[in-house]
Simulated assay, not measured.
Amino acid sequence: MVPVKVYGLPMNGSVARVLACLEEVDAEYEVVVVDLHTGEHKRLPHLARNKFDSVMLPIVFQGLVVPVYMGGTSGLKVIEENLEKLKEIMEVYEERLSKLKYLAGNFLSLADISHFPMVHLLQETPYGSVLDAYPHVKAWMAAVMDRPAVKKVMVLMKTFG
């Protein structure tokens, strides 16, 4: 099996959680250090590794946080720009998920679970229907969100939201 590449610093809480999960299942992995001091984490190619959250965050922020929690008006230009970027990313996911049940193969992994928070929040905005055009993505995320552990966390997300 090809080792999983984990980008970041092991002292980072998120990276440490990923590494602990990989250790739990005795998976091979390689830590690829991202130099925070030089700002590598804010530049390409590192940003290109996780386009999903970087595109979803402005949509969720402008479509949910600003109008609901801050009482402001959504930045429609920001939303529209990021929806177009999201559609490009969804095309890649759709292609992959047309061949596999989950992102990393035919087994659930942290790669799948890590996507549900943003998708869940996106669905709370008027823009959640953007995923309707991608049947494999929609089915994949429905399967992830149907898991008991994810359902519990979604309840917690609403409790603290």
Rank of each mutant, 00 (worst) to 15 (best):
G63C: 02
R49I: 14
V65F: 09
R17K: 14
E30F: 06
L22S: 05
K51G: 15
T38F: 01
V25I: 11
Y69E: 11
H46N: 11
D26Q: 14
P67W: 03
R43A: 03
M70I: 06
L47P: 00
D35H: 09
V65P: 00
V55L: 08
V65C: 00
N12C: 09
V31N: 04
D26R: 06
Y29A: 07
E40I: 04
V15E: 05
L22N: 01
D26P: 00
G63H: 06
L44F: 07
I59P: 02
L47T: 15
M11T: 12
L44Y: 06
H41A: 11
G39T: 11
A20E: 14
P67V: 09
A16E: 04
R17D: 07
H46P: 00
M11L: 10
N12R: 07
M11V: 14
L44A: 10
D35I: 11
V33F: 06
Y29Q: 03
F52N: 10
S54K: 02
Y29W: 08
V68Q: 14
M70S: 03
F61T: 13
M70F: 10
E30Y: 04
P58M: 07
T38M: 01
V60D: 04
P45F: 08
V15T: 11
V66C: 03
V65Q: 06
M56T: 07
M56P: 00
M56F: 02
I59F: 02
V31L: 12
N50A: 13
P10E: 15
L22E: 06
E28H: 00
A16M: 10
E23S: 08
V18W: 03
S54A: 09
V25T: 11
V25P: 00
